[in-house]
Computed example of a mutant assay.
Amino acid sequence: MRGLTDAGPDRGPAGAQAVITAATVVAAVALFAAACGTGGTGARDEGPAHSDSVERAPAAKAPSPNPSQTYEKVDAVALVKADPAVSATVKRDLKPCAGTEYPVDVTYGDLTGGQLDDVVVNVLTCGDAVGVGAYVYRREDGSYKNVFKAEESPVYAEIDKGDLSVTKQVYEKGDPVSSPSGENVITYRWTSGRFVQEDFHHTDYGNAAGGDATEDPTAAG
């Protein structure tokens, strides 16, 4: 009690200030306790913060793939018809099957290591899609040059893991067009400025036995 008595009139202004400060602290504690009693989230009990009040950075966009720098679409029909290496028979028979649709298959890919993709063109028949000519064109000095041709029908050329694969159906006497006796698959690789045979494989459909190699398709150098 002595302490309270000593804090009497002699300390009037300071004592009053201490009392006010203590009352303020008590009130603040009471308010804090009341807020905790409503759910323990304080001011957030009024509701979640508005999402539009937070500025979000725009999502990063994935870069768009660049178009191929080595691909150039060609008019395969015009290319074949203007090619002096293509036989007159193939050119004469190369006509639309229906409307403006020509019987040609065109494949683009790297076979010769040029700046632009090489073009593999297969000319087929309209009725049964038998290959009558297979050609490879390489871009050189601003134009396409014939670097391979095979016209021993039926024949078909395609790109296989960077090599040129040529398939030729083998018919025995009396075989219908739909049922060849076997096939020869010849693989070529671009070497020293020309296609060189790398592999030869024969399949006999009748007894699965190997056969003799047939004459290779002609490679234009």
Rank of each mutant, 00 (worst) to 15 (best):
D110T: 12
A150I: 10
Y108K: 08
K95H: 13
A150V: 10
A98G: 13
V132I: 14
G109N: 09
D117T: 07
T100L: 14
V132C: 06
G127E: 04
R138I: 08
T107F: 11
T107H: 09
A129H: 05
G109P: 12
D110M: 05
D141L: 06
G131C: 07
R139H: 15
V147E: 02
T100H: 15
V120Q: 06
A150K: 00
G131D: 02
D118E: 06
A129Q: 13
P96E: 11
V130D: 03
C126E: 01
K95P: 10
D117W: 03
V147L: 07
A150M: 08
K91A: 04
S143Y: 02
S143W: 02
G109S: 10
L94M: 14
L94W: 11
L116P: 04
G113C: 04
F148D: 07
D110W: 06
Y108G: 07
E151S: 02
S143P: 01
Y108T: 14
T125E: 12
P154M: 08
P96K: 02
P154H: 08
T100A: 15
E101I: 15
V104T: 14
D118S: 09
K145S: 12
T107Y: 09
D93F: 05
R92G: 12
P103R: 10
C126V: 10
Y102I: 13
Y137I: 05
T107S: 12
V132S: 07
D93A: 11
K145C: 04
V106N: 01
D105W: 00
K91N: 14
A98D: 15
G113R: 00
V120C: 00
T107C: 08
A98P: 03
S143F: 00
C97N: 14
E140Y: 08
V136Q: 02
D128C: 01
K91T: 07
G133K: 05
E101A: 15
N122I: 13
V119A: 08
Y144Q: 03
D93H: 11
D105L: 12
L94Y: 10
V106P: 06
T125G: 14
K149A: 02
V136I: 01
P103W: 09
C126D: 07
D93Y: 07
